[in-house]
Nucleic acid binder design. Structure first.
Lengths: 205, 205, 205, 205
DNA sequence: TATGAATGAGTGTTCATTCAT
DNA sequence: TATGAATGAACACTCATTCAT
């Protein structure tokens, strides 16, 4: 994955802290300004470090945001790994959806940068491989879940349903995160219901 | 709507032509480059006019894109006006959805700038009032349709369902426009099915 | 030659003046700082214009300096054209050398930027095509002169002598321009004498 | 010579090795990139030491390159010392020139950094005292040789001839080092012939 | 003493916007 | 009114140099 996009993999405690600092600042700037309006100088200022330090770790702005995307990707992967360990693929659909959607929504609420990166079909991010990879991961994992559930279905057809479902979720995540706290549960349950009634007839036998 | 964001409402034939020329060029640039990467100079060049002329009609880049959004808004409004005239609100849900979604999808395919503007939760467009207004129009009109269908339901509850449905559609429009021609019909029918099964239980009594 | 290195060929009087202003400022900066230390901002400041204006005419620093080199090249070409019209190739060698060297030395004294660009085997200028072309022009023209003088000699051999002679002159031009006024004539005559005694035995039959 | 430009004269074996390592790396970087494009970090990397260590020995980039120039200077001095011991100043001019030029050419071919430093009238090197001193040494020594040969001549006049001759050689050294191997001998012999015919009439009685 | 992470002034360049013509 | 040359703040990025460890 990353590798040649990272200038130096920090070994020391100090370095790791710095990278975390940078990524955190980048995340906040990304949320506030978006990719194009986020400046590397602002990231540095926010992180309380010098601009040069950013370029010690990332060769350019793109690599910095890519690193952020990959960090999310890694965490999402972890999320799914845990999911797969615990989940019973023979569980009823609503339960499956709970298991798939809840962690994603929780992660999205916790990490607003994730939304800024992921929930967009537009702008330069559209061309960012790391964002595509992230979306692909989510789709692939979900496909796997449903592959266990209805093994008879045509692969590409199953994938089509999931692609549509994932895009819908992608668009609805911001609705959850921007909803007033008292409405959040309702919005979330509605998203799940939408998925459930959409997938029910085609996926279960 | 427009108001103080337009420097001068062109009265003459000539002026109206120029504005159309500018908006057309802006649309194309928006599609090719996105809001941030589209330059006002490129718009002028594409329109075959001078950069100064753009600023004769629009005080800044934002106002130019806002005007584009408002042009879409006006056309969408026309779309719905015609819809309301022809539509039978007592028709079965799938038919209603056809009537609501088909023109929107057709419009989106015909005007790629619409998608660039509308189908994005992100970046400066996020804060653009005109885009919000456009979305609000779509939501309001749809709410009206369903208000006729199930007048007993709580207003805000009905609106919640529609908001969710519209956001889902918003996210899925790009899937239609980027789909291979032979898949387009399938994607479209799936979107409609999703809406149908999502709205059926809550809207019809 | 130039063409795609020039962003816009100024048509108006005003534009031509501006380009001249820029090139003049660039020349002075080049003399004072050398290519690498000359900054485009300093050129703009010296020209009394904004940095943006430079980029209206030249797409980058390199193109600006290239334009300077090409301006010198064009003038040098003019120098040689006049030379060829007036010169008698059957004249004795010392006279030929006078005709060849005097204008070059005069030009170099008048345009210190020429020296900064031309009299260097080093640094990024080494790779600048325009400087190579300039040197090649001087060599080619000189070769032509001597081709008339001793037509029997092997072409490549004649060229070898001229290449050596031109490089020597190139190195000695700065000696002339930095010499104290009262020594200048002496240095110049010595350079010519060196050329004369070097070329005499090989070129004249 | 060195003096306040050197931060610390390394006493120990270890220190002397480090300095040699640094200078060697600096030389290679100088050849590959030129003074302006050579970075101190690249020198450190090439030397396999830390950037800090360079600044332990040299206060800045300039001092580092100056040290290199002085190293060349010292070796050139050694060259001339040996020369003087062996040379017969009453030898015929061509032989004298052989004795003077051959070692210089050999040295230049062996140490490409020498050329990068010495054979340039330009850029920051122009102002580098150490390069001037190096050139002065070569001129002084050559003057001494010819002082023995024609003791009657006016000192300053003799020096003038030598200055011109040395500058010519300076410019022609790169021609030797870049020449194709099969042409190298020819170029070298031509340089010597130029010197010979130039100096013959003025220096020998 | 050696290290190399950290610094930040300075570079080339872009582009929204202005205004003289 | 239309033009497009002119502006200059702002940006991504570099690299000589410092200094805490």
């Amino acid at each position: 994955m990353s590798d040649n996009f990272v200038r130096r993999v920090p070994q020391g405690e100090r370095g790791r802290k710095r990278v975390a600092l940078i990524l955190e600042a980048a995340e906040q700037e990304l949320v506030e300004s978006g990719y194009d309006h986020m400046t590397t100088n602002a990231v540095a200022a926010r992180a309380g470090i010098s601009i040069g330090s950013i370029y010690q770790f990332y060769p350019n702005k793109d690599a910095l945001v890519t690193a952020l995307a990959e960090a999310y990707h890694a965490e999402i992967r972890g999320l799914y790994d845990r999911l797969f360990a615990e989940m019973n693929p023979r569980a009823p659909l609503p339960e499956l959806i709970d298991h798939l959607v809840d962690p994603l929504v929780a992660y999205n609420v916790a990490k607003p940068g994730f939304e800024s990166l992921f929930c967009s079909t537009l702008s330069p991010l559209k061309q960012m491989a790391a964002v595509d990879a992230l979306r692909a991961e989510i789709i692939d994992r979900t496909v796997q879940v449903f592959a266990a559930l209805c093994p008879d279905m045509d692969d590409s057809r199953r994938r089509s349903y999931i692609v549509i479902a994932v895009h819908a979720v992608e668009a609805l995540l911001p609705l959850v995160s921007t909803a007033k706290p008292e409405e959040r549960a309702f919005v979330l349950s509605e998203i799940k219901r939408m998925l459930q009634v959409y997938l029910q007839p085609v996926l279960s036998p």
